[in-house]
Simulated assay, not measured.
Amino acid sequence: MEEESPPLPDPDGPDLDQYVRDTSTKTIYGFLYRRRENPPSMVEIRAWAANELGEAHSQIDRRVRDLRTFFDVPAERIDGEYRYALRGWNPKRTGLVGAPITRRVRAEVLAPGRCAQCGRTPLTHGIVLVVDHRVPQAWGGDNEIENLQPLCEDCNHGKKDFYSSHDAHAEEIKQAISHEEPHRRIGELLKAFRGAWVPGELIGIVASAVQYQEDWQKRLREIRTLGWVIRSEKRYNEGSRVRTYYRVESWEPWPTGSISAEIRRRERSNAARRSDDG
């Protein structure tokens, strides 16, 4: 017989202190706790918390992600919009996904002494390095060393802001990441956005979630071999870099068995047809 999960801690009781220490995150927990029967959207959470706490949206989004360490707070589509429902405990409510980050692992991750994103170093630039999850824990990332990297605090905060902008799709992203084959991870992510433009950076993160993909763009192009219609668009007005976005307009069911094998088979067939036509 399955063991019954203990009740959630009262937001005004002492038990919550075991899991949530800062007052602001406790305040948001209390809001979600009281709204369990009528879960709020992220817009509602931000508006309420900004009024109560006076914090920026990125801080509020981060506190919701922090609550997910111990509590089950899925983004559920209700009445046409995503709402954040406090459903119970996170099944992995030890606060960790996988083994904890030991001092030895932390030292190994930070050993390069350089931010993996901007390249700055503590000695030359006076920055502080932190251990970052390449794939966030809220999206299914774990504490294995392959999922950890050194980032400076500035890049870490910027990355969190970028991730929080996709919180409405957190459950779909987590589902896409769960697949073994990179083609399926990319395709399921594009489908989850329902025809909306998806930034290339996000696709790269999801594509490399299980195993690093040096050329995830090639994997994306290969999906078109299966009959998928995927468009791309470059944007030149979003900072100093040109950003590429992708969206899927139509797709076919995944083949039975290995996707890579089926792609190779179709590529050979197409090449033979072109040779015959020539």
Rank of each mutant, 00 (worst) to 15 (best):
D161K: 07
V20F: 08
E181I: 06
D167L: 14
E144R: 15
R231W: 05
G140M: 07
N237T: 14
R46Y: 10
V97S: 06
K234A: 10
D167M: 14
P253C: 15
I259W: 11
F193C: 03
R63M: 07
A107N: 08
D276M: 14
W254P: 00
P136K: 14
V64A: 01
A176M: 09
R35N: 01
N51M: 01
E55N: 04
R194A: 13
E52I: 13
I259L: 05
E249I: 09
E81D: 11
C155P: 01
I230K: 10
N147I: 10
L86T: 09
L110S: 03
R63Y: 03
G113R: 11
F31W: 10
F162I: 07
G119S: 05
D22W: 13
W89L: 05
A176Y: 07
A49K: 00
G204F: 12
R184L: 03
D66W: 06
V43A: 08
S258C: 04
S164M: 04
Y19T: 10
R87G: 01
G227T: 12
T23V: 13
G126C: 04
E153V: 12
R264M: 08
V248A: 14
L67E: 02
R62D: 01
S178Q: 09
C115W: 07
T102R: 02
Y84M: 02
I145H: 03
H157F: 05
R265I: 14
E267Q: 12
T244Y: 02
D10H: 12
H125D: 08
R106W: 04
D276W: 15
D22T: 11
W89Y: 03
N90Y: 09
A176F: 06
E252M: 13
F162S: 02
A107H: 06
A75V: 02
A272C: 01
H183C: 03
A47Q: 04
L86S: 03
W139N: 01
S165N: 09
S41M: 10
P14A: 10
F162C: 00
D12K: 15
G239V: 00
E233H: 05
W254Y: 14
E108T: 06
D66L: 12
N237V: 12
G54L: 14
E172D: 12
A170P: 00
G195I: 15
K234E: 13
S5V: 14
F193A: 01
A116P: 00
A170V: 12
V128E: 13
Q211W: 03
L151A: 06
F193R: 01
K159Y: 13
V73P: 00
H57T: 02
K218G: 02
C115N: 09
M42C: 01
R68Q: 11
P40I: 07
A47P: 00
T121C: 02
S240I: 11
G239K: 06
P122Y: 15
D66K: 12
E262Y: 13
H183L: 11
R62F: 04
G113N: 04
S240V: 10
R120L: 11
R224I: 08
T121P: 01
Y33Q: 04
G95E: 06
